[in-house]
């Protein structure tokens, strides 16, 4: 995701003034995403949290305690969304791997069909080379699906807690 352009930055100006502009843009960016959005939206939200975190971490010595506290919260959001993204990646890996095995098994089954066969004998199912793999992969898939759901619930609780605690307003106070 491309970062929003920050307008009015001035290299000869003070770090504090420029940092405030960047923080304001990055806060708006973070809040432009739907915390209940699809995996792509949550991935972009994670990147927005990362950008906010890094600017706050770098400039906290100039902006003060509110920036340091904001950086710590942004890091927690980033970490939680990162773990959620890892689940999405793992689910995609498992699905792609399973699909490759299915394809290989189907080819193998076809090759086992007797010459001139008009249908595939049921006994072919016993000879599928990857037949013992699917059970474990299904378990993994169910595990990562459940873990993702749980992490998302945790993220929503965290996000709502931050809202109640005035996270956004606290950051704007830095400005």
């Amino acid at each position: 995701m491309k970062a929003r352009r920050v307008k009015g930055l001035e290299p000869s100006g003070s770090l504090v003034d420029n940092a405030r502009r960047i923080v304001a843009t990055r806060v708006d960016e973070l809040y432009s995403f739907d915390p209940n959005g699809n995996p792509k939206e949550l991935h972009d939200m994670r990147i927005a949290a990362k950008r906010l975190r890094y600017v706050l971490e770098l400039t906290a010595p100039a902006l003060g305690d509110a920036a340091a506290k904001g950086a710590s919260e942004a890091k927690q959001i980033q970490t939680l969304l990162g773990e959620l993204h890892d689940c999405d990646e793992m689910l995609a890996l498992i699905a792609a791997h399973t699909e490759r095995l299915r394809g290989a098994d189907a080819e193998a089954a076809l090759a086992l069909a007797p010459r001139g066969a008009t249908d595939l004998p049921a006994s072919t199912a016993r000879s599928l080379p990857n037949r013992l793999h699917y059970r474990g992969l299904e378990s993994l898939s169910a595990y990562f699906r459940a873990r993702r759901e749980l992490l998302h619930r945790r993220f929503i609780r965290k996000w709502e807690r931050l809202e109640r605690a005035g996270f956004r307003e606290g950051l704007l106070e830095v400005l």
């Binding site: 290299p11 003070s14 770090l15 770098l58 400039t59 010595p61």
Partner: peptide
């Protein structure tokens, strides 16, 4: 990072 305080310019930082 040394010198990133409120007296620094954006360019120096």
């Amino acid at each position: 990072i040394p010198g990133l305080d409120d007296s620094a310019s954006f360019g120096q930082a």
